[in-house]
Protein backbone atom coordinates (compact mmCIF):
# COMPACT_ATOMS: atom_id res chain seq x y z
CA UNK A 1 0.00 0.00 0.00
CA UNK A 2 1.41 3.37 -0.88
CA UNK A 3 1.57 5.84 1.93
CA UNK A 4 -0.52 8.97 1.73
CA UNK A 5 1.38 10.72 4.50
CA UNK A 6 3.15 13.23 2.20
CA UNK A 7 -0.09 14.08 0.39
CA UNK A 8 -1.90 14.71 3.66
CA UNK A 9 1.07 16.67 5.03
CA UNK A 10 1.16 18.89 1.96
CA UNK A 11 -2.57 19.62 2.12
CA UNK A 12 -2.19 20.28 5.83
CA UNK A 13 0.67 22.71 5.30
CA UNK A 14 -1.22 24.50 2.60
CA UNK A 15 -4.38 24.69 4.70
CA UNK A 16 -2.55 25.95 7.78
CA UNK A 17 -0.68 28.43 5.60
CA UNK A 18 -4.00 30.15 4.95
CA UNK A 19 -4.85 30.39 8.61
CA UNK A 20 -4.81 33.92 9.98
CA UNK A 21 -4.03 32.69 13.47
CA UNK A 22 -0.92 31.04 12.23
CA UNK A 23 0.30 34.12 10.45
CA UNK A 24 -0.35 36.07 13.64
CA UNK A 25 1.92 33.65 15.47
CA UNK A 26 4.62 33.94 12.84
CA UNK A 27 4.23 37.70 13.02
CA UNK A 28 4.62 37.54 16.77
CA UNK A 29 7.78 35.44 16.59
CA UNK A 30 9.36 37.56 13.89
CA UNK A 31 8.13 40.71 15.62
CA UNK A 32 9.75 39.76 18.92
CA UNK A 33 13.03 39.17 17.16
CA UNK A 34 12.80 42.45 15.28
CA UNK A 35 11.76 44.50 18.31
CA UNK A 36 14.37 42.86 20.52
CA UNK A 37 17.18 43.47 18.09
CA UNK A 38 16.14 47.05 17.51
CA UNK A 39 15.83 47.72 21.24
CA UNK A 40 19.24 46.26 22.04
CA UNK A 41 20.79 48.14 19.17
CA UNK A 42 19.25 51.35 20.49
CA UNK A 43 20.50 50.76 24.05
CA UNK A 44 23.84 49.17 23.37
CA UNK A 45 25.07 49.49 19.80
CA UNK A 46 28.43 47.96 20.67
CA UNK A 47 27.10 44.52 21.56
CA UNK A 48 28.17 41.69 19.29
CA UNK A 49 25.67 39.89 17.12
CA UNK A 50 26.50 36.64 18.95
CA UNK A 51 25.58 38.15 22.34
CA UNK A 52 22.34 39.50 21.00
CA UNK A 53 21.49 36.11 19.56
CA UNK A 54 21.72 34.74 23.09
CA UNK A 55 19.15 37.25 24.23
CA UNK A 56 16.59 35.54 21.99
CA UNK A 57 16.60 32.44 24.18
CA UNK A 58 14.37 34.00 26.79
CA UNK A 59 11.42 35.12 24.64
CA UNK A 60 11.70 32.12 22.36
CA UNK A 61 11.39 29.55 25.13
CA UNK A 62 8.03 31.08 26.02
CA UNK A 63 6.60 31.94 22.63
CA UNK A 64 7.73 28.96 20.56
CA UNK A 65 6.00 26.28 22.63
CA UNK A 66 2.79 28.29 22.89
CA UNK A 67 2.79 28.91 19.15
CA UNK A 68 3.50 25.26 18.46
CA UNK A 69 0.79 24.04 20.82
CA UNK A 70 -1.72 26.38 19.24
CA UNK A 71 -0.67 25.21 15.79
CA UNK A 72 -1.16 21.59 16.74
CA UNK A 73 -3.83 21.06 19.36
CA UNK A 74 -6.73 21.09 16.87
CA UNK A 75 -4.96 19.09 14.18
CA UNK A 76 -6.91 15.85 14.40
CA UNK A 77 -9.73 16.57 16.84
CA UNK A 78 -10.71 19.72 14.94
CA UNK A 79 -11.39 17.66 11.82
CA UNK A 80 -13.22 15.11 13.89
CA UNK A 81 -15.57 17.69 15.30
CA UNK A 82 -16.20 19.52 12.03
CA UNK A 83 -16.61 16.27 10.11
CA UNK A 84 -14.00 16.97 7.45
CA UNK A 85 -12.17 13.87 8.67
CA UNK A 86 -14.94 11.81 7.08
CA UNK A 87 -14.20 13.41 3.76
CA UNK A 88 -10.52 12.69 4.30
CA UNK A 89 -10.91 9.09 5.47
CA UNK A 90 -13.46 8.41 2.74
CA UNK A 91 -10.54 8.91 0.38
CA UNK A 92 -7.63 6.45 0.32
CA UNK A 93 -5.71 7.95 3.29
CA UNK A 94 -6.25 5.85 6.41
CA UNK A 95 -5.96 6.85 10.04
CA UNK A 96 -2.21 6.32 10.10
CA UNK A 97 -1.79 8.64 7.12
CA UNK A 98 -3.97 11.22 8.81
CA UNK A 99 -2.08 11.27 12.11
CA UNK A 100 1.41 11.25 10.62
CA UNK A 101 0.50 13.48 7.70
CA UNK A 102 -0.86 16.03 10.13
CA UNK A 103 2.14 15.61 12.38
CA UNK A 104 4.52 16.37 9.54
CA UNK A 105 2.35 19.17 8.18
CA UNK A 106 2.04 20.98 11.50
CA UNK A 107 5.72 20.43 12.27
CA UNK A 108 6.55 21.99 8.93
CA UNK A 109 4.38 24.97 9.76
CA UNK A 110 6.08 25.53 13.11
CA UNK A 111 9.45 24.89 11.52
CA UNK A 112 8.73 27.56 8.94
CA UNK A 113 7.77 30.07 11.62
CA UNK A 114 10.94 29.40 13.62
CA UNK A 115 13.02 29.48 10.46
CA UNK A 116 11.61 32.86 9.46
CA UNK A 117 12.28 34.28 12.92
CA UNK A 118 15.89 33.14 12.76
CA UNK A 119 16.33 34.47 9.27
CA UNK A 120 15.22 37.87 10.51
CA UNK A 121 17.63 37.54 13.45
CA UNK A 122 20.49 36.78 11.09
CA UNK A 123 19.77 39.74 8.86
CA UNK A 124 19.20 42.19 11.72
CA UNK A 125 22.33 40.94 13.49
CA UNK A 126 24.35 41.73 10.39
CA UNK A 127 22.68 45.10 9.83
CA UNK A 128 22.69 46.38 13.42
CA UNK A 129 25.73 44.70 14.93
CA UNK A 130 27.87 44.11 11.89
CA UNK A 131 28.63 40.42 12.18
CA UNK A 132 27.19 37.04 11.30
CA UNK A 133 27.78 34.47 14.09
CA UNK A 134 26.97 31.70 11.68
CA UNK A 135 27.93 28.64 13.74
CA UNK A 136 26.08 29.87 16.83
CA UNK A 137 23.18 30.82 14.66
CA UNK A 138 22.86 27.46 12.94
CA UNK A 139 23.17 25.55 16.22
CA UNK A 140 20.68 27.74 18.05
CA UNK A 141 18.25 27.68 15.16
CA UNK A 142 18.36 23.90 14.93
CA UNK A 143 17.81 23.51 18.67
CA UNK A 144 14.89 25.94 18.60
CA UNK A 145 13.51 24.16 15.58
CA UNK A 146 13.61 20.87 17.45
CA UNK A 147 12.03 22.55 20.46
CA UNK A 148 9.18 23.96 18.40
CA UNK A 149 8.66 20.76 16.46
CA UNK A 150 8.58 18.78 19.72
CA UNK A 151 5.74 20.90 21.05
CA UNK A 152 3.90 20.70 17.74
CA UNK A 153 4.23 16.92 17.91
CA UNK A 154 3.03 16.86 21.49
CA UNK A 155 -0.03 18.88 20.53
CA UNK A 156 -0.84 16.76 17.47
CA UNK A 157 -0.50 13.66 19.65
CA UNK A 158 -2.97 15.09 22.15
CA UNK A 159 -5.33 16.15 19.36
CA UNK A 160 -5.37 12.59 18.01
CA UNK A 161 -6.07 11.04 21.37
CA UNK A 162 -9.13 12.99 22.48
CA UNK A 163 -12.66 13.33 21.20
CA UNK A 164 -13.42 17.00 21.80
CA UNK A 165 -11.72 20.31 21.24
CA UNK A 166 -12.18 21.24 24.87
CA UNK A 167 -10.35 18.18 26.10
CA UNK A 168 -7.52 18.81 23.71
CA UNK A 169 -7.15 22.40 24.84
CA UNK A 170 -7.38 21.46 28.51
CA UNK A 171 -4.72 18.79 28.12
CA UNK A 172 -2.38 20.97 26.13
CA UNK A 173 -2.70 23.88 28.54
CA UNK A 174 -2.33 21.49 31.46
CA UNK A 175 0.84 19.99 30.05
CA UNK A 176 2.31 23.41 29.36
CA UNK A 177 1.47 24.50 32.89
CA UNK A 178 3.10 21.35 34.20
CA UNK A 179 6.33 22.18 32.42
CA UNK A 180 6.41 25.87 33.29
CA UNK A 181 4.47 26.39 36.49
CA UNK A 182 4.13 23.10 38.32
CA UNK A 183 7.33 21.25 37.59
CA UNK A 184 9.08 22.22 40.80
CA UNK A 185 6.06 21.26 42.89
CA UNK A 186 5.79 17.90 41.18
CA UNK A 187 9.48 17.04 41.40
CA UNK A 188 10.94 18.94 44.36
CA UNK A 189 7.75 18.44 46.38
CA UNK A 190 8.08 14.67 46.66
CA UNK A 191 11.82 15.14 47.20
CA UNK A 192 11.05 17.32 50.17
CA UNK A 193 8.67 14.75 51.58
CA UNK A 194 11.16 11.94 51.12
CA UNK A 195 14.29 13.60 52.45
CA UNK A 196 12.91 16.35 54.68
CA UNK A 197 14.79 18.93 52.66
CA UNK A 198 14.50 20.55 49.29
CA UNK A 199 16.81 19.24 46.57
CA UNK A 200 20.34 20.62 47.08
CA UNK A 201 22.75 21.30 44.24
CA UNK A 202 24.00 17.74 44.42
CA UNK A 203 20.60 16.14 44.59
CA UNK A 204 19.76 12.46 44.25
CA UNK A 205 20.28 11.05 40.77
CA UNK A 206 16.63 10.19 40.20
CA UNK A 207 15.73 13.77 40.89
CA UNK A 208 18.30 15.09 38.46
CA UNK A 209 17.00 12.67 35.84
CA UNK A 210 13.51 13.96 36.44
CA UNK A 211 14.76 17.53 36.08
CA UNK A 212 16.33 16.54 32.82
CA UNK A 213 12.93 15.42 31.54
CA UNK A 214 11.46 18.93 31.45
CA UNK A 215 11.55 20.05 27.80
CA UNK A 216 11.90 23.68 28.89
CA UNK A 217 15.16 23.08 30.69
CA UNK A 218 16.24 20.62 28.01
CA UNK A 219 15.91 23.48 25.55
CA UNK A 220 17.74 26.06 27.63
CA UNK A 221 20.51 23.60 28.45
CA UNK A 222 21.00 22.77 24.79
CA UNK A 223 20.76 26.41 23.76
CA UNK A 224 23.32 27.50 26.34
CA UNK A 225 25.76 25.16 24.65
CA UNK A 226 25.15 26.69 21.25
CA UNK A 227 25.42 30.38 22.04
CA UNK A 228 27.58 32.78 23.99
CA UNK A 229 26.37 33.16 27.55
CA UNK A 230 23.55 31.14 29.05
CA UNK A 231 19.83 30.83 28.56
CA UNK A 232 18.06 30.23 31.85
CA UNK A 233 14.87 28.28 32.02
CA UNK A 234 11.79 30.37 32.62
CA UNK A 235 9.82 28.36 35.16
CA UNK A 236 7.89 29.25 38.31
CA UNK A 237 9.99 29.04 41.47
CA UNK A 238 8.41 27.98 44.74
CA UNK A 239 11.56 28.01 46.83
CA UNK A 240 11.48 24.26 47.40
CA UNK A 241 14.69 24.04 45.50
CA UNK A 242 17.75 26.15 46.04
CA UNK A 243 17.67 29.04 43.54
CA UNK A 244 21.30 28.59 42.59
CA UNK A 245 20.67 24.90 41.95
CA UNK A 246 17.70 25.65 39.76
CA UNK A 247 19.90 27.68 37.44
CA UNK A 248 22.32 24.80 36.91
CA UNK A 249 22.02 21.93 34.47
CA UNK A 250 21.71 18.37 35.81
CA UNK A 251 25.19 17.57 34.46
CA UNK A 252 26.69 20.46 36.44
CA UNK A 253 24.93 19.32 39.60
CA UNK A 254 26.07 15.74 39.41
CA UNK A 255 29.14 15.00 41.51
CA UNK A 256 31.76 13.58 39.17
CA UNK A 257 31.14 12.44 35.62
CA UNK A 258 27.46 12.56 34.85
CA UNK A 259 25.86 9.44 33.35
CA UNK A 260 24.80 9.87 29.73
CA UNK A 261 21.19 10.61 30.57
CA UNK A 262 22.21 13.61 32.67
CA UNK A 263 24.53 15.08 30.09
CA UNK A 264 23.56 18.19 28.19
CA UNK A 265 23.18 16.53 24.78
CA UNK A 266 20.57 14.19 26.26
CA UNK A 267 18.18 17.13 25.98
CA UNK A 268 17.77 16.15 22.33
CA UNK A 269 16.46 12.76 23.43
CA UNK A 270 14.17 14.46 25.94
CA UNK A 271 12.66 16.69 23.27
CA UNK A 272 12.15 13.68 21.01
CA UNK A 273 10.57 11.83 23.93
CA UNK A 274 7.92 14.55 24.13
CA UNK A 275 7.05 13.95 20.50
CA UNK A 276 7.12 10.18 20.47
CA UNK A 277 5.17 9.41 23.63
CA UNK A 278 2.17 11.72 23.08
CA UNK A 279 1.99 10.78 19.40
CA UNK A 280 2.16 7.07 20.25
CA UNK A 281 -0.62 7.36 22.82
CA UNK A 282 -2.72 9.63 20.61
CA UNK A 283 -2.24 7.40 17.58
CA UNK A 284 -3.15 4.28 19.53
CA UNK A 285 -6.35 5.87 20.83
CA UNK A 286 -7.26 7.34 17.45
CA UNK A 287 -6.81 3.97 15.73
CA UNK A 288 -9.28 2.33 18.09
CA UNK A 289 -11.94 4.97 18.31
CA UNK A 290 -15.26 5.35 16.51
CA UNK A 291 -15.46 8.62 14.68
Amino acid sequence: MTSHIPTVARKEFEDAGRSKLLWALIGLLVGIVAVGYTAIWYVDGDASAAEVLGFLGFPLQTIVPIAALIAGYMAVVGERRSGSIKLLLGLPPNRTDVVFGKLLGRMAVVGTAVGLAFLVALVLGAVFFGSVPFVDWVGFALITLLFGVAFAGLAVGVSAGVSTRGKSMALVVGIYMLFVALWELVTAGPYYLLYDEGPPVEAETWYLALEQLNPMSAYTTLASNAIEGSVYPFTFQYGLEDFEASQMTPAERFAGDAPFYLQDWFGVVVLLFWVVVPVAIGYYRFEKTDL
Binding site: K11, G83, S84, K86, L87, L89, G90, P93
Partner: peptide, 19 residues
Protein backbone atom coordinates in the same frame (compact mmCIF):
# COMPACT_ATOMS: atom_id res chain seq x y z
CA UNK B 1 -7.96 -1.93 -0.35
CA UNK B 2 -11.52 -0.62 -0.24
CA UNK B 3 -11.08 3.15 -0.16
CA UNK B 4 -9.24 3.52 -3.51
CA UNK B 5 -12.10 1.70 -5.28
CA UNK B 6 -14.96 3.46 -3.56
CA UNK B 7 -16.35 6.97 -3.83
CA UNK B 8 -17.77 8.24 -0.57
CA UNK B 9 -20.19 11.02 0.17
CA UNK B 10 -20.35 10.87 3.96
CA UNK B 11 -23.05 12.20 6.19
CA UNK B 12 -22.27 15.08 8.54
CA UNK B 13 -19.04 15.93 6.76
CA UNK B 14 -17.43 19.31 6.37
CA UNK B 15 -15.08 20.77 3.80
CA UNK B 16 -11.78 22.53 4.43
CA UNK B 17 -12.95 26.13 4.69
CA UNK B 18 -9.64 27.69 3.67
CA UNK B 19 -8.98 25.53 0.63
Amino acid sequence: AISPRVGVLPEGFDIYPRL
